[in-house]
């Protein structure tokens, strides 16, 4: 469903991604691990189409279409979802308003009927409950004053409502307490289906106990250095990234 070939990207003139090759098939869950600053978030931003990330080489095809040609909202409508490492605050805009606008914008682009207020509320309430979030959080402005963990839960809620075909979870586990981690993981697992794929970025093998990946990749120095099964995560947990030439102290 997504095929990344020899992807190079620069930020502010500095090359961060130096030739990424990655293919993810329908229903697959891939995990990316790698030291800080190795380019994991950069990859997710490039895929989502953020301004300022310049692709200098390579290609990405998404359901056979050229992903890099699309506007961010077109990518979203095509089914790409990014759970941000640092979710953004939008003062004054209620969470529900935001979600409803997003959902209906996507439905409209897909030629599906928009949901009215009642249908929407029903849907959101259901998902909120499943993630142990409160209605009060829905009324509050998007991410404003949310704790780190609450923000991550909010990202998961949005994913559950928007039902993407391909979700990138950028460190969605960081900042979550033990119970929340389980809840979020359950939420993610509930979305797993033969058509839906995921790219899970994480530093901790713990998350992968809950969301069991089909493949694990190590990203360092802007390249995928090694790929393997879920046992690779355990190995990294034990040995760190030293074998990839990463100085622990740095």
């Amino acid at each position: 469903m997504i095929e990344i070939k020899n992807l190079h990207a620069t930020v502010d003139g500095k090359e961060i991604l130096k030739g990424i090759d990655l293919t993810i098939g329908p229903g697959e869950v891939h995990a990316i691990m790698g030291p800080n600053g190795s380019g994991k978030s950069t990859l997710s931003y490039v895929l989502a189409g953020r301004d300022g990330y310049e692709v200098t080489e390579g290609s990405v095809s998404f359901f056979g279409k050229d992903l890099l040609e699309m506007e961010p909202e077109e990518r979203a409508a095509a089914g790409l979802f990014l759970a941000f490492q640092y979710p953004v605050e939008i003062p004054g805009v209620a969470n529900t308003t935001f979600l409803k606008s997003a959902l209906n914008a996507i439905r409209k682009k897909r030629g599906e009927p928009e949901l009215d207020a009642m249908q929407f509320l029903k849907l959101v309430r259901e998902k909120t409950k499943a993630l142990s979030m409160t209605d009060e959080m829905l009324k509050r402005a998007v991410n404003v004053g949310f704790s780190g963990g609450e923000k991550k839960r909010n990202e998961t809620l949005q994913m559950a409502v928007l039902q993407p075909k391909f979700a990138i979870l950028d460190e969605t586990d960081s900042g979550l307490d033990i119970d929340a981690l389980k809840i979020v993981a359950e939420g993610v697992n509930a979305l797993r289906s033969p058509e839906r794929s995921m790219l899970v970025i994480t530093h901790y093998q713990r998350l992968l106990d809950y969301i069991v990946p089909d493949h694990v990749h190590v990203l360092a120095f802007g390249k995928i250095q090694r790929s393997g099964g879920k046992e690779l995560a355990l190995e990294l947990e034990k040995n760190g990234y030293a074998e990839f030439g990463v100085n622990e102290a740095a």
Binding site: G49, L82, V93, F98, S101, A102, A105, A141
Partner: peptide, 24 residues
């Protein structure tokens, strides 16, 4: 970018953010 990643067009995103700005 956050809004557009969630599927809103740039114009709708601006309108939404500005409405939030004026909420008070």
């Amino acid at each position: 970018f956050y809004c557009r990643q969630r599927g809103l067009s740039e114009e709708d995103a601006v309108s939404l953010i500005v409405n939030g700005f004026c909420k008070e």
